[in-house]
Structure formats: structure tokens, C-alpha cells
């Protein structure tokens, strides 16, 4: 083993500390070292969104982040969204709207939706937000959700239901 670095971060509320190969991505840390296999590797190049997690509350592609650079951060994965008995409202909505088929992109979709709703509440615009939109939360209309969720590919084609699920929770 070559260059290793000690990394400490907080994953789903728990401290995770490990000496890691510098080449390890956050995604591989989560899957192979923290055994959180809910986060998925779809492309490993930031082109599909299946590995989406929340980094200090913001949604990111964990495949393109080096674990060594994440020292001191707080990570939330799909496993951290609910206690296992009561589902997170988005998890519930995804079930209710049948917003997935194979389910492989689903953890990333749900983490992404958590981020998307937070971003809209914080007033962050998207490519389809009106230029003269007033300050304050952005209403998650259908076009807004479609645009904001476009970083998460779903090959089964569950987008129609994903949009319904996200909209229900965003209301």
C-alpha cells in the first residue's frame, strides 16, 4: 500500500475514522469501508447521480470526491435518512408513487430530492426559474422538479412518478 492518510468524518451521525488509500473515493469509503451499500455506483464518473449523498447538507456525487479531502465533513446517506422504522417523507412518497422499478438509482434519487427541496427552500434558482423571481423559496413546480432532478438518471424511466413523489413532499 502506498500513500495513506488518516481520515475522520461523520457518517449518518456516527464518527468514522480510518487510515485510507489516498485514491479512495468517498463512494468507495462508504460502500467498501463503512459497509453502507445503499449508496450505489452507477458510472463512477459523475454522470448518473446514483452515488448521491449529502455532504454537510448539500447533495454531491460521492464518486468524484476523494475521501482524504472529506476529513471533518458530515455525510448523510440513504441509510441515515430514517431510523429504519419510520420512513423519511421522501422514502414514503417514493413508495406511494411507485417512483422506481429496479431501485438501483433510488437511494441517489431520494438523497438528491432531499437536497433539491432544501435548495429550493433556500431560494436557489435553477435553469428554469424565472429571472425576475422574487427572493425567498422557489416553488417546486413540475418543470422545476424535472430540471432539479436531472442529475439523477433512471434507466427504468420512472421520472414521471419521481416528479410526483418529490412534488408531494415539497408542498
Amino acid at each position: 500500500m502506498g500513500a495513506m492518510t488518516a481520515v475522520t468524518l461523520n457518517v449518518n451521525g456516527e464518527r468514522f475514522s480510518r487510515e485510507l488509500d489516498n485514491r479512495t473515493t468517498l463512494l468507495d469509503l462508504l460502500r467498501e469501508h463503512a459497509h453502507l451499500s445503499g449508496v450505489k455506483k452507477g458510472c463512477d464518473h459523475g454522470q448518473c447521480g446514483a452515488c448521491t449523498v449529502l455532504l454537510d447538507g448539500r447533495r454531491v456525487n460521492s464518486c468524484l470526491l476523494l475521501a482524504v479531502a472529506m476529513d471533518g465533513t458530515e455525510i448523510t446517506t440513504i441509510e441515515g435518512l430514517s431510523d429504519g422504522t419510520t420512513l423519511h417523507p421522501l422514502q414514503r412518497a417514493f413508495v406511494d408513487h411507485d417512483a422506481f422499478q429496479c431501485g438501483f438509482c433510488t437511494p441517489g434519487q431520494i438523497c438528491s430530492a432531499v437536497g433539491a427541496i432544501a435548495e429550493a427552500r433556500a431560494g436557489w434558482p435553477s435553469a428554469v426559474t424565472a429571472h425576475d423571481a422574487p427572493p425567498g423559496p422557489v416553488e417546486l413546480t413540475v418543470p422545476e422538479v424535472r430540471e432539479r432532478m436531472s442529475g439523477n438518471l433512471c434507466r427504468c424511466g420512472a421520472y414521471v412518478n419521481i416528479v410526483s413523489a418529490v412534488r408531494e413532499v415539497a408542498r
Binding site: E32, D96, P107
Partner: peptide, 25 residues
């Protein structure tokens, strides 16, 4: 009827081919 495995899929506990824990992998 809702998918029987829906809960596993939305909580990340549904296991796919490389999600099974193994020793000395």
C-alpha cells in the same frame, strides 16, 4: 398492490450483486 420490496429499495437495504458483505474480499 405496492411493490413488496419497496421498503428495501427506498431505505437502501435491497442488496444488489456487489452489496453482499464478504470476508477477505
Amino acid at each position: 398492490t405496492a411493490r413488496l420490496e419497496a421498503r428495501e429499495k427506498v431505505t437502501g437495504t435491497a442488496r444488489y450483486a456487489t452489496d453482499y458483505p464478504t470476508d477477505r474480499t
